[in-house]
Nucleic acid binder design. Sequence first.
DNA 1: GCTTGACCTTAACATTAGTTGAGGTTTTAG
DNA 2: CTAAAACCTCAACTAATGTTAAGGTCAAGC
Lengths: 153, 153
Amino acid sequence: MAEKGVLQRYLSVGEVASRCGIAVSAVHFYERKGLISSIRTDGNQRRFHRGVLRKLAIIKVAQKTGIPLSEIGAALDKLPPNTVPTIKDWEKLSSQWRDDLNERIEQLTRLRDQLGKCIGCGCLSISACPLYNPGDALGSDGPGARLLELTEE
Amino acid sequence: MAEKGVLQRYLSVGEVASRCGIAVSAVHFYERKGLISSIRTDGNQRRFHRGVLRKLAIIKVAQKTGIPLSEIGAALDKLPPNTVPTIKDWEKLSSQWRDDLNERIEQLTRLRDQLGKCIGCGCLSISACPLYNPGDALGSDGPGARLLELTEE
DNA sequence: GCTTGACCTTAACATTAGTTGAGGTTTTAG
DNA sequence: CTAAAACCTCAACTAATGTTAAGGTCAAGC
């Protein structure tokens, strides 16, 4: 009881999980992966600093943009350890991720537009469609035959 | 030699793979998953109808939009079997997928915009940021505290 | 007609992002 | 003080999307 004042200093894994809307197992997982960290009670239970909530929020946002955990972890690693990420930190991360996001949005938009152009255009014939043509006529068709490489993968 | 006229009727797995720019193992995989099909020679080698190239092109495009193979397969299953997909077929698939794409683009765009608003806004404080707040202050903060639910997952 | 490259099957492995279960311990509420 | 809820670890499992390897067969060119 004495531990649980108005300003609760540390959070149990269950509290962290429910506050972030993720599973306890996911919190464990992120810790195993080094994305977050905790200290332990005498009884070996995890206790998380409040800052972990912010990190988890950042993780969730970044995941939504399609960034793999490994990259998210690498980015978080560059933040000063043992502190709550500052606004400056957040600024750096979020603007970088926003650039990634923008790129992905552009790729998808190009794809969508090409898709739109191809709908009903009749170009799906074997030799002419930029969507269709995978390399099939790369030699004979010259330019304009490779939407499939559009996103540069 | 007699088999290999100007209008080659069937393609070997290697030809299919190289024309589509994918690995032979991937072609096998797609066949195992039922996305494409083949007939066999007397010697048990796969022979693909040319239509498979179109299907593979569709598969690649759909994958780029983020559609899982299972869904792509389900969509392809609704096409008349044993024929090259027609333009009408393609029209239906592509417009549906374009809608999916649009939705994903919108989600990412919302996320990016929110990200932009949050950069440097100073709102990353525990109780106020719409990006940050995962449910932490859902009770006390009322509306405006849930970008993390933005994309409704 | 033989050698080499392409093909066959089956099984195991890789990666990402977790979840589930077993078996045991700690914390908390009454 | 005790029982239930929450926590612990470790290992195995899931699912998607393939790749790699082993061991063997087929086909095509010289």
